[in-house]
Amino acid sequence: MKQIIQCQLNGKPVELVVDVRQSLLEALRSHGLTGCKEGCGVGECGACTVLIDEVPVDSCITLAIRAEGRVIRTIEGESINGELSPVQQAYVDAGAVQCGFCTPGLVMKTTSYIEGLAQSAGGCCQSGSNGINRDDIRREHAGNLCRCTGYQTVVDAVEKSIQYYSGQK
């Protein structure tokens, strides 16, 4: 059974025709947003992470119809006018990208993490000053699997993201 849902997708109001059984991942991908990836389909790997009302979710285990009236952010909305977001730039600069299949999900998770940090610190998000260490970063990103990097450069990228984000503010 098909249903029309309305939501805000990467800053723009959209209408999507979805099967009521479809996952948000399938709905986004069939809408042309193929940046979010399926690595497991059951919420184990995080490659499909998108933000719903700023909360990171595994879109593979979120029903598309749950997006009704919500604000959705995907990887495709993160660079604006060709400019990479601070998190995207940090991933590039830290060498945290290899095969790139997990990267969109990781970037979305980190984005939500550092924006959350900034908010809780009243706009100030500085590595060290609010006591964020590499283990905190690991704990926060434990739901995103990567098989290429050993996570070393991904943790570096999150540290850099915090720097870049605070530098931008």
Binding site: T34, S79, Q88
Partner: peptide, 17 residues
């Protein structure tokens, strides 16, 4: 990496895309 920007923006296309 030549493909770094394509990969962080989700523009890089894999087989299923």
């Amino acid at each position: 990496r030549l493909d770094a920007k394509a990969k962080v923006t989700g523009r890089c296309r894999f087989t299923g895309d």
